[in-house]
Design a protein around this nucleic acid. Structure first.
Lengths: 159, 159
DNA sequence: GACCGATAGTTACAACTGCAACTATTATAG
DNA sequence: CTATAATAGTTGCAGTTGTAACTATCGGTC
């Protein structure tokens, strides 16, 4: 048994908790602005963002690229179709597979959101040195890989 | 206008997105385990965790400590009362104010969850050096402060 | 000591999310 | 060529979460 087994846990030193609070703060700020200013939800923005970079993807591929599940993508896509920011075709080879592209209107919001997003990020990271940004980048990559590897938690394995 | 205004944005380099994906991965892993193994939701666990450290807090104070809103706390508390993991009194001085403490059963789950939580965190951070952990700690603190300071985003102010 | 604004906590309702079932299409086996 | 299994995407339902309205109590003022 680890020696700290009976030491009470301080939530404010617990990394998963701190990550969660930080993400909530950041996401709430961004989501509010996207919604109010562009009539976009975060899932919609993500779909837009990947399709701007790689036009013609299918919904399933968008899901992979955005770490969203297929239901979330489906709903985001249908929202974007409703607001005419996306056009959808279907692949000749496989008519189940959708082919998604930004419409002109989609490109237009995209190019309004991008500087906005960059500016938020720039401000968030404003007083980090180049070195610290590098550390942040490395840590995020590392932790993401680790979290994926750990996966849906082994309940109570003796270590 | 910044010179990158018309460069498309790569989602996988965008810090708010990466934070969100990382937090989702970590939270899903933890939430699943808590639910399955202890019958606890994450909000309930947070309430338990702060009350274990500071017994007798009111719901409002728990909300502050956990970065949850008062409705979420109210629901978590009522869940914990239902499962008899919490006992609630009301302050003599102010009978609106609740006085919350873990019951014996509450202490018991708490002490089963704590090692579990620590172990997950330990594994998540397993191959970080002491230095890297220090950087992570500093970065999380810094970014949290920054995000709070930026607040509900100024939509389109010229900078 | 009755009124009025503020505060603690709960409830009601709407929006969002996730899982599972469903439809449509394609690929594979016999 | 038909039957079966697999895949892309959608829809329905249930549980969760957030916002706003509500109840109860308090503190201060006249």
């Amino acid at each position: 048994m680890p020696k700290d087994a009976r030491r009470r846990l301080r939530l404010d030193e617990f990394v998963p908790y701190r990550l969660s609070v930080l993400t909530n703060t950041v996401s709430a700020a961004i989501a509010g602005a996207y919604a109010e200013r562009f009539g976009l939800s975060i899932p919609e923005w993500r779909v837009l963002a990947v399709l701007a970079l790689e036009p013609g993807l299918s919904a399933a591929t968008v899901a992979e690229r955005t770490a969203m599940d297929k239901v979330a993508v489906s709903r985001a896509v249908s929202g974007l179709l409703r607001t005419r920011r996306l056009v959808r075709g279907f692949a000749n080879a496989d008519r189940r597979r959708s082919v998604l592209r930004l419409s002109a209107a989609g490109e237009q919001v995209y190019w309004r959101v991008v500087p906005f997003a960059r500016r938020y990020e720039r401000r968030l990271l404003a007083d980090l040195t180049r070195t610290e940004r590098g550390q942040l980048d490395a840590l995020l990559a590392h932790l993401q890989a680790r979290a994926l590897a750990l996966g849906p938690v082994i309940p109570d394995e003796t270590e």
